[in-house]
Write a protein that binds this DNA or RNA. Structure first.
Length: 532
DNA sequence: TAAAGCATGAAGTCTTGT
DNA sequence: ACAAGACTTCATGCTTTA
C-alpha cells in the first residue's frame, strides 16, 4: 500500500465523463418506456413506471448500519488519528442531523453534505448520498489535483477515498453490462433474514407503485447472466430482490432471488424444522461417508442426475486403494460428488439422490410427484424446477394473520404446486386458486394433491399464460372477487448456468415468459386498482 | 413411441497466492 | 493490486433401450 500516493492517484484515475453524466442526470431515473423482446411497448399501470421512485434499499437496523464499504470507511477514519471519534449521544438528533453527522465524519463538509442530501431527497440512504457526493467530486476533481494546489489533510483523505470509490465504481461497471446500478448478491445470502439468524432486524420501504393489492411474489435463479436481475427489478416496480440460499432452510443449497411486496416483519418458519445437514437428512449415508468427504450440505438440486457409468468409474477408481485414497483421487471423487450431488450408499459406492429424497429435501410431502403417470425422468425434472417449500413458506408466512379466512391465489408457472403446498402447510386456507402450468403431468400432480388434501376451495387450471388476456383476467377477478397474491417463478432455462446451449438471458425462448408474469401482474394491479 | 442414458463447458463469483 | 485457480450452476440434445 506504500508508494507515492499522489502519483498513484493521478496516474490511475482515468478522468472519463461517465460520472459527470451521472451527476447531471441525478437522481438516476429508471426506464420510462419498457419494451418486450418483440419490441412492442409494454403498457404500464398508470404512473407505475413513469414516476421513478427513489431507489429503496433494505437497511439494517443497527447502530453501525450499512454496507461493508461504510464499515471499512469508518475503520480507516478511526485508524487515521486526524479524526477523533468522540462518543456523541445521537439519540436526540433528527434523522437528517444524524445523516449529516455521519457524512461529516466521513470527511465531507457540512455544506457538501447538505447539498447532496437536498438533491437525493429525504429518503435517500447514506450510500446513495455518498454516491452522489463522489460523482459530484469527480466532476471537479481535476481542480484538486493541480500540482500547485496544496491539499489540506482533509482533502488528501478525501481524494484517497475518492479514488477508492472510483475503483469500486469501475469494478461495478465491469460487472454490469450497461448503465444503472449493480445488483450484488449478498453474503451471506440470507435476504431479509432466515430463521435462527434473527440478530439483525431488517426494514425496507417499498416504492409506492409496488404496493398491493395484490401482493406479488416472483422467483428465479440468483446467478443469472449480467443485467437480468436489474431488468426484473426495473419491471417489478423497482423492488429490490431478496436473494436467499435455501441451505439455511434445508440440507441443500438453492440460490434464488425473490422480488415481492410482502411485509418482512414477523416471519415464522414451518415446523418441524427440516434437517439442515446431509447426515441428518440422509442418516443411512453416514455409515459409508468417508472422513475426507467434508460436505455437510448438498449443492443445488437440479433436473438431471449423475449417470450409472459415472458412479461406476468412481467405484473403480476407489477400489484400487485400501483405506484412504491419495489426494489426487480424493479430489477427483469430491469434484464429481459436488457436481452431481452424489451420496455414499456403500463402500466405495456413490449414488445420485432418489426422487423421494429430492422431494423431502425440497419440503414436499412424500410421494408428491410419484405415480399418476409421471415418468422417473420427468419427476426429477419437475422437482428440479420447483420451489424449496420451507424457504418460500417462510416468506409467505406473514400472510397468515392478514388472511385468516383464506386467500385467492393466482399462481403462474405453478409447476408441481410449490406455492400451493407452501400456503397449505402454513395453514392458510386456499379459497380460489387459478393455476397456470404448461406441463400436463405437473397439472395432474397439483390436481392430485388438491384432491388428496381435501381442499375446500376451487382450483381453476390454465395451460398457457397467453390464455390470460385482459378480458379473461377481468372476468376472473370479477367472479373470484380479486386476487390476494400473484405468485410465480418463470422459466430459468435461459438463465441457468447449467445450460450449455442456450443461456440467452431474459430474452431467451423460455425465460422471456418473465414478461408475461409482469404483464399479468400489471393487469391484475390495474383492474383491481380500478375497482377500489 | 416414450423413457432412460449419457456426454457436452461457459460464465460467473469467490478464494488464494504473489 | 493483480492474476490465477477453485467453485457452482432450477439444462440441452443426441443416442440407446424398453
Amino acid at each position: 500500500m506504500g508508494g507515492n500516493a499522489s502519483g498513484e492517484e493521478s496516474d490511475n484515475i482515468d478522468w472519463d465523463t461517465e460520472d459527470e453524466l451521472e451527476i447531471q442526470n441525478f437522481p438516476l431515473s429508471s426506464c420510462s418506456t419498457l419494451t418486450n423482446p418483440g419490441g412492442e411497448a409494454i403498457v404500464c399501470a398508470g404512473e407505475a413506471l413513469e414516476n421513478s421512485p427513489p431507489q429503496q434499499k433494505p437497511v439494517i437496523d443497527s447502530d453501525h448500519s450499512s454496507s461493508d464499504y461504510y464499515e471499512n470507511f469508518l475503520d480507516e477514519i478511526s485508524d487515521s488519528d486526524s479524526w477523533s471519534e468522540d462518543e456523541e449521544n445521537t439519540e436526540s438528533l433528527s434523522d437528517k442531523e444524524k445523516t449529516l453527522l455521519s457524512l461529516a465524519k466521513m470527511g465531507y463538509t457540512v455544506e457538501e453534505a447538505s447539498i447532496a442530501m437536498d438533491r437525493c431527497g429525504p429518503d435517500a440512504s447514506i450510500d446513495e448520498i455518498t454516491d452522489f457526493l463522489c460523482a459530484a467530486q469527480m466532476a471537479k476533481a481535476a481542480d484538486y489535483l493541480l500540482p500547485d494546489d496544496e491539499p489540506k489533510p482533509k482533502r488528501k483523505f478525501f481524494e484517497r477515498e475518492l479514488w477508492k470509490r472510483k475503483k469500486q465504481r469501475r469494478y461495478e461497471k465491469r460487472m454490469m453490462s450497461e448503465d444503472s446500478e449493480t445488483i450484488r448478491l449478498p453474503k451471506p445470502m440470507i435476504g431479509f433474514g432466515v430463521p435462527m439468524e434473527s440478530s439483525q432486524t431488517f426494514h425496507r420501504t417499498l416504492p409506492e407503485a409496488a404496493m398491493g393489492p395484490p401482493y406479488f411474489y416472483y422467483e428465479n435463479v440468483a446467478l443469472a447472466p449480467k443485467g437480468v436481475w436489474d431488468t426484473i427489478k426495473r419491471f417489478l416496480y423497482d423492488v429490490e430482490p431478496e436473494f436467499v440460499d435455501s441451505k439455511y432452510f434445508c440440507a441443500a443449497a438453492r440460490k434464488r432471488g425473490y422480488v415481492h411486496n410482502l411485509p418482512i416483519d414477523n416471519r415464522f418458519p414451518l415446523l418441524p424444522l427440516p434437517p439442515l445437514t446431509i447426515h441428518e437428512a440422509l442418516p443411512l449415508t453416514r455409515k459409508w461417508w468417508p472422513s475426507w468427504d467434508t460436505r455437510t450440505k448438498l449443492n443445488c438440486l437440479q433436473t438431471c442426475i449423475g449417470s450409472a457409468k459415472l458412479t461406476d468409474r468412481i467405484r473403480k477408481a476407489l477400489e484400487d486403494w485400501d483405506g484412504e485414497p491419495p489426494l489426487r483421487v480424493q479430489k477427483y471423487v469430491l469434484d464429481e460428488c459436488r457436481k452431481w450431488n452424489l451420496v455414499w450408499v456403500g463402500r466405495n459406492k456413490l449414488a445420485p439422490l432418489e426422487a423421494d429424497e429430492v422431494e423431502m429435501l425440497l419440503g414436499f410431502p412424500r410421494n408428491h410427484t410419484r405415480g399418476g403417470g409421471i415418468s422417473r425422468t420427468d419427476r426429477y425434472k419437475s422437482l428440479g424446477n420447483s420451489f424449496q417449500i420451507d424457504t418460500v413458506a417462510y416468506h409467505l408466512s406473514v400472510l397468515k394473520d392478514l388472511y385468516p379466512g383464506g386467500i385467492n391465489l393466482l399462481s403462474l408457472f405453478s409447476g408441481i404446486g410449490g406455492a400451493e403446498v407452501s400456503l397449505h402447510r402454513l395453514g392458510i386456507p386456499l379459497k380460489t386458486v387459478v393455476s397456470v402450468e404448461i406441463s400436463e403431468v405437473n397439472r395432474n400432480i397439483v390436481r392430485g394433491w388438491w384432491e388428496q388434501t381435501n381442499q375446500k376451495g376451487n382450483l381453476i387450471d390454465f395451460t398457457d399464460v397467453q390464455q390470460l388476456d385482459g378480458d379473461r383476467i377481468e372476468q376472473l377477478i370479477h367472479s373470484v372477487g380479486g386476487f390476494d397474491l400473484v405468485i410465480g417463478g418463470s422459466p430459468c432455462n435461459n438463465l441457468a448456468g447449467s445450460n450449455r446451449h442456450h443461456r440467452d438471458g431474459l430474452e431467451g425462448k423460455e425465460s422471456a415468459l418473465f414478461y408475461d408474469y409482469f404483464r399479468i401482474l400489471d393487469l391484475v394491479k390495474c383492474i383491481m386498482g380500478r375497482q377500489q
